[in-house]
């Protein structure tokens, strides 16, 4: 990577990388039979982590612009539900994919418009839309899972694109890397990325300098919605079914990953590399602790502690560089 990318990750980029290496080393040594490094375990992480990961990239960019989106945990299952309905209605899987993406985009767009037009904190707005869509989903799906495997044969295009392996590498992690590169270019190299940072760092300054603040926010919410739709389809295809609990608690896990990755809740700070590493740290912690037979509530507690430690560390480093 060239100079500006390193600069924009600065100190935090380094400490996030150190933390990631530390977590990997720790679990490599301390999991029974070094199971963490076992190729089957790594490939399982690479297949499962991108569900949350793809969405986390968008949440991270949104946080850099100083906005939240809690509604992702409802947008994801709704998109999966609509995808399932379309397949049941006899739509070709790839067509269903391309119809579901704009549905997610529209739900994100709606969040963005409400946030921009009301000027109210996005935390409250997206909490409301999360609850609203969840209600709609429960009513429509009655919480019943729907099997959809039969709609895409093992070798169909969509099934391959979402679940195959390229050599030993699950395609899900390649999708995550693909989005990381594209969104990284947008965030760090494109002028739109500069507007995202400007809006998060000083919204009034951005507006005074002619940045269309409303546009930046609406585009970011729409992006998050689109990524939710993608993640929903990727997950539903892998599971071979729609489940109403898809995406559950992603809203908070994504923020945890982004914060661990060095983004500031005050906006203006963060990088795509940091977001990706933050996600991998959180997912590795989860995986490693389970392998070490820590009970489920213990895993949660440990991740909670890790997030707090990272926030404290990031705040400390931030103050020191000010």
């Amino acid at each position: 990577m060239n100079k500006p990318l390193i600069r924009s990750t600065s100190y935090r980029g380094i400490n996030t990388t150190v933390a990631f290496v530390g977590v990997v080393l720790f679990f490599s040594v301390f999991t029974p039979n070094h199971l963490f490094l076992d190729s089957r375990n790594l490939s399982s992480i690479a297949r499962l982590a991108p569900d949350l990961g793809v969405v986390t990239l968008g949440i991270g960019m949104l946080l850099i612009a100083r906005e939240f989106d809690l509604s992702i945990s409802s947008i994801i299952p709704i998109c999966a539900f609509i995808f399932a309905l379309l397949l049941e209605a006899g739509m070709y899987p790839l067509a269903a994919f391309f119809v579901t993406l704009p549905v997610g985009a529209a739900m994100g767009f709606l969040n963005g418009v409400i946030v921009v037009k009301t000027g109210l904190p996005s935390f409250i707005i997206t909490l409301s839309t999360m609850m609203f869509w969840r209600g709609v989903l429960f009513g429509a799906s009655r919480m019943m899972p729907r099997a959809i495997r039969r709609y895409f044969p093992a070798n169909s295009l969509l099934n391959n694109a979402m679940t195959m392996s390229v050599g030993p590498i699950p395609i899900q992690i390649l999708w995550l890397l693909f989005f990381t590169v594209i969104l990284g270019l947008l965030l760090h190299k494109h002028k739109f990325g500069n507007w995202i940072y400007a809006v998060g760092s000083n919204q009034d300054a951005a507006r005074a300098m002619g940045v269309n603040v409303a546009l930046v926010k609406i585009v970011l919410y729409t992006l998050v919605g689109t990524l939710c739709a993608f993640a929903a389809i990727m997950q539903a295809t892998r599971l071979g079914s729609f489940s109403a609990t898809q995406g559950a608690r992603y809203e908070l896990q994504a923020i945890a990953a982004v914060v661990v990755g060095g983004a500031s809740l005050r906006g203006g700070v963060g990088s795509i590399g940091g977001i990706l590493l933050g996600l991998l740290i959180v997912k590795s912690l989860e995986n490693g602790l389970i392998l070490m037979r820590v009970p489920v509530f213990g895993v949660e507690a440990f991740i909670g502690i890790a997030v707090i430690l990272f926030v404290i560390l990031n705040e400390y480093l931030n103050r020191r560089t000010e």
Binding site: R7, N194, W195, Y197, A198, G200, S201, N202, D204, A205, A206, A208, M209, G210, V211, G267, G268, V269
Partner: peptide, 20 residues
Amino acid sequence: YQEQALAPDLTIARNVFMGR
């Protein structure tokens, strides 16, 4: 502006050209 129209988290160069 009185309330400085700069984004503190951005570099000098990116501030000079912000929005353009």
